[in-house]
């Protein structure tokens, strides 16, 4: 139906495209470490060595773990397997709440303790009016 030239051109472009796809796949695979925005407490536990570098840890704020005093706020990040204590001086975002997602950026003192320099609230994929949320709560 089509000429030989068109077929060859199609093959040529397809091959180039596939090789670029494969190359970028391999690059992303090897850069995995840097592509993730934060580590989980479990991943922090399993770190080979603690570097004195800024790190982001994310997970859920453990229920009843938020403690505040005049100077700082401390809470526990959990991924329901391991936990990590975070302390922070400063104000937290409005959506920071226990039982909700959080990302803390700062320096690790040890495998269980992070001194945060920035707290980000993570929003989940659920959107609903307040009445629906109350109805859901009552059902549970």
């Amino acid at each position: 139906m089509y000429g030989k030239k068109v077929k060859l051109r199609a093959l040529f472009i397809l091959l180039i495209f596939l090789s670029v796809v494969l190359t970028s796949f391999l690059i992303f695979k090897s850069l995995e470490e840097n592509v993730v925005y934060f580590k989980s407490p479990t991943e922090v536990k399993n770190l080979a060595e603690l570097e004195n570098k800024k790190i982001r840890v994310g997970g859920m704020v453990k229920k009843n773990s938020i403690k505040t005093n005049d100077l700082e706020i401390s809470f526990i990040i959990t991924d329901f397997q391991n936990e990590l204590i975070v302390s922070f001086k400063g104000s937290v975002p409005n959506l920071f709440e226990e039982g909700k997602g959080v990302v803390a950026e700062g320096f690790l003192e040890d495998r269980n303790y992070l001194k945060a320099t920035k707290i980000l609230a993570k929003h989940d994929e659920n959107y609903m009016p307040p009445e629906v949320e109350e109805a859901l709560k009552e059902n549970n």
Binding site: E125, N126, Y127
Partner: peptide
Amino acid sequence: WWSTLHQPSSVNLLEETTIHSSM
């Protein structure tokens, strides 16, 4: 694929959509 600050998608063709119908 990766942990991101951005939330996962709420409108899904194959899985349940997590946005209330009024929204």
